[in-house]
Write a protein that binds this DNA or RNA. Structure first.
Length: 801
DNA sequence: AGCTAAAATGTTTTT
DNA sequence: CATTTTAGCT
């Protein structure tokens, strides 16, 4: 009897030894194999390690740890053997432990959904390290983003929900074009209803799994919403006839597939016994439904997330998904990972302090065993040119004095537009760097054009892409002819390409245009015939050549521009070559899917020795020894759109939390007195997020004086404060004179009922006055332009009588 | 009808 | 400031 107990205790001990690199909480998460598990993982708490180990654990040992199963006869010898195993090496111990396995799951029955393809790839690589890259486990495990996983389902079962299996994915820009077209068809003026907001509303509706009818139903008397529902309806119909899905459709159609087709649902629910979802705080309603459906049979679902890092509300993420996970599943096990392995205590204290200003948190406090580390360095510069120079000087300094490499630095900003000034400074200092995001690679004009050719060749119904390339390079098919062709094609029920093949039969198209159209259709048709005969990369070269695109680019006068474009096309070809090597069955449609779903961060390679510049959003999930946070100013970060809205402000604060927690060793924060943004010079106060960091964690450098108390309105111009930090650079070198920021002329103050005039909106009456930080918010009713909310500093209102 | 050049306009974050 | 829209020119 006692032997049996000892057997169980020893078995657990051996597993604990095997996972000795993990802490107690992490181990608990790995052992929690069956049933719903919620892991609240703070930044840098080793959640990828947990995810990988847990998946491997499920595959190798199943529920071995928790099981009370004991062989019928346990002898002293067995116990002795187990005791000896304590000293085995990691690998041998792992092999030994497989004999305790209890219903281990085949690798193909485990699904890991992550936020980026890169994270998915990392999980796969680490699974490969455990099982070997040649193993079945490595090749059969299903990892990917929500979108890539859903695409795989739709390629297989898409016909059940009305999509042909060679469907294409339509990105945001393409979908915007299509919506514009739909609005034209419905005769809705773009000025009364902005395309962007229509697109946004439709996207949000899809996130909530609402059909056009649902949206119309919810609209009630809301005229605008009714119109949008109408557009949505037409848009959806157009997408379907062209065999296109937008990003939201990918999820929505998969949910539709699973909820509407019991047989498919049963098959998939039983196939995927274990589901793991990463970054759960950023899932939207549709994704929640999807996970509920997939895990509906076994309910073995583990979600990992951090409510403090939820930064995609604007994209439909519902933070409640993680906050109320336990309401969707009975007997949820909750495990909190709070020990941080990434940052110094100072960085964590700063991050904790910032995030503590948010309400509605589950509450988590990161701690670490590592040292206190250097203080957060806060610098005040005059302009963003100085800011760029400051950053490049610090990089050179840290590199020469403290032995860091270029790859150890990341510059994280709120908006892509901020990268320019920093790039210029880095170029001047000859510091190698890469920018992620911004004009994303696949969104560059020439890349998009060639990819559009590929889309049309892959799916001839794709009118959206066809319209993009119909006259690029110039073929003498002008806008007017295209408009007519689209209209006629629609009436006759043809795709645009099909119509163009027979363009000459229609007298409405001018003879010269119809000739060009037929030639173009012939070009596409003949390219289509060679797709199967060559590799994707070779085919792309053929397209670039045959379409006349290369000739067009070579005719560009400007050398730099020409070379830039040619090198972008080269990179496209290289991407295709890479794809051919990594994919098991390379095909044009496979390549196109990758093109549509891959993000810039996925392409980020941390081996290259270069400083990396990206938005804070893109940086989520990454870490760097030294992080620069430029532009920590009110109206920039937090952005001016968010300042009025407490909820959005909290999201900005979470973003600040994400930013700070990317750093392992040091954080350099900077803010400037005057910033050129959108062609206007702004004078912004230091960001409230910096003020939320305790003084004791901060070291100020340069001419800072920002720490004036809240109440004393202005700042940035206290005189006489000396340089105080160890970094004492001459920022103004090379400039004739550094302009002291000018004292603001006291603004005229208005009261409710005052008559005022505005440069743009004309005359109006003050409706309300609200004190906002160091500024005043006026609500004004204008005679011509209705009610507007204006900040006193920017509006330049004048009193009239 | 198509192309080029000047005018207007509008700006967060992304799979 | 950089892209998109519109007016004028060929």
């Amino acid at each position: 009897m006692d032997l049996r107990k000892e057997y169980i205790t020893l078995k657990k001990e051996l597993f604990d030894i095997y996972y000795r690199d993990l802490n107690n909480k992490q181990r608990e998460a790995v052992y929690a194999v069956n049933g719903p598990v919620l892991i609240l993982a703070g930044a840098g708490s080793g959640k990828t390690t947990v995810l990988v180990n847990r998946i491997a654990h499920i595959i190798r040992f199943g529920d071995a740890y928790n099981s009370d199963l004991v062989p019928e006869f346990v002898s002293e010898d067995t116990i002795e053997e187990m005791k000896k195993a304590r000293t085995l090496g990691k690998r041998e111990l792992g092999d030994y432990l497989t004999k305790f396995a209890v219903s281990p799951a085949p690798a193909w029955s485990v699904m890991g959904i992550t936020f980026t393809n890169k994270a998915a790839g990392e999980i796969k690589t680490r699974i490969g390290e455990i099982f070997g890259e040649e193993s079945d486990e490595y090749s059969s495990i299903m990892t990917g983003t929500f979108h890539s996983v859903c695409c795989r389902f739709l390629r297989r079962y898409g016909s059940l929900v009305g999509y042909d299996t060679n469907f294409s994915i339509c990105d945001t820009a393409d979908s915007k074009n299509l919506i514009t077209e739909c609005m034209k068809r419905l005769d809705i003026d773009e000025k009364t209803l902005a395309v962007k907001s229509v697109q946004n509303t439709i996207s949000k509706a899809k996130d909530k799994l609402m059909t056009p009818e649902d949206l119309a139903g919810e609209a009630g008397n809301d005229f605008k919403l009714k119109k949008i529902a109408e557009i949505y309806s037409v848009y959806q119909e157009r997408l379907k006839t062209q065999n296109l899905l937008d990003f939201d459709d990918i999820i929505m159609a998969t949910v539709e597939l699973l909820s509407g087709h019991e047989d498919v649902r049963n098959t998939l629910q039983r196939r995927y016994r274990y589901i793991c979802v990463d970054e759960y705080q950023d899932t939207n309603f549709a994704q929640l439904r999807l996970t509920l459906l997939l895990s509906g049979y076994y309910k073995n679902i583990m979600v990992v997330g951090d409510e403090d890092q939820s930064i995609y509300k604007f994209r439909g993420a519902v933070i409640e998904n993680i906050l109320s996970f336990d309401q969707n599943y009975d007997n949820t096990r909750v495990i909190k990972l709070e020990e941080n392995y990434r940052s110094t205590q100072t960085i964590l204290d700063a991050a904790n302090s910032i995030i503590s200003h948010n309400t509605g948190r589950l509450g988590k406090t990161l701690w670490t065993q590592s040292e206190k580390g250097d203080p957060i360095i806060v610098s005040n510069l005059d302009t963003q040119i100085d800011e760029g120079r400051y950053i490049s000087t610090v990089i050179s300094d840290e590199r020469t004095k403290n032995g860091f490499s270029f790859r150890d630095f990341a510059v994280l900003y709120r908006m892509n537009a901020q990268s320019r000034a920093i790039e210029q400074a880095l170029v001047k200092s000859a510091i190698p760097y890469r920018v992620l995001g911004g004009l994303r690679f696949f969104e560059r004009l020439e890349v998009k054009d060639i990819v559009s050719y590929l889309y049309v060749i892959n799916n001839p119904m794709d009118d959206v892409r066809l319209r993009r390339i119909i006259n690029t390079p110039r073929r003498g098919i002008g806008n007017r002819s295209v408009e007519i062709a689209v209209l006629l094609a629609y009436e006759e029920g043809f795709s645009l390409l099909e119509f163009m093949r027979n363009a000459r039969k229609y007298s409405a198209i001018s003879p010269s245009a119809s000739k060009s159209m037929q030639e173009f259709a012939f070009l596409i048709d003949s390219l289509r015939e060679s797709v199967a005969k060559m590799t994707v990369s070779n085919f792309i070269m053929k397209v670039i050549d045959d379409s006349g695109y290369e000739r067009m680019i070579r005719e560009i006068e400007n050398k730099t521009e020409r070379d830039e474009r040619l090198s972008n096309l080269d990179e496209l070809i290289n991407t295709a070559k890479q794809y051919e090597q990594t994919s098991d069955e390379p095909s044009l449609s496979g390549f196109l899917e990758e093109v549509a779903l891959i993000s810039d961060v996925d392409r980020y390679d941390d081996e290259a020795d270069a400083v990396v510049l990206m938005t804070i959003h893109s940086a989520k999930g990454l870490e760097f020894p030294i992080v620069f946070l430029p532009g920590m100013e009110e109206n920039v970060f937090p952005g001016y759109q968010t300042i009025m809205n407490p909820e959005e402000l909290e999201e900005e604060r979470r973003l600040a939390y994400v930013a700070v927690t990317r750093a392992k060793k040091k954080v350099y924060i900077s803010h400037v007195n005057s910033r050129m943004l959108n062609g206007q010079t702004q004078m912004n106060q230091i960001s409230r997020f910096v003020r939320e960091i305790p003084d004791s964690l901060i070291q100020q450098t340069a001419m800072d004086s920002y720490r004036s108390p809240y109440s004393s309105g202005y700042y940035g111009k206290r005189t006489g404060s000396a340089f105080s930090g160890k970094y004492n650079y001459d920022w103004s070198a090379g400039k004739p004179e550094t302009k002291q920021s000018k004292p603001k002329t006291p603004l005229e103050v208005f009261e409710v009922g005052d008559n005022v005039s505005h440069g743009l909106f004309g005359n109006g009456v003050i409706l309300s006055v609200k004190q906002m930080g160091g500024d005043i918010l006026y609500e004004v009713v204008f005679e011509e332009h209705g009610t507007k909310k204006l900040m006193a500093t920017f509006a330049k209102l004048k009193k009239i009588n």
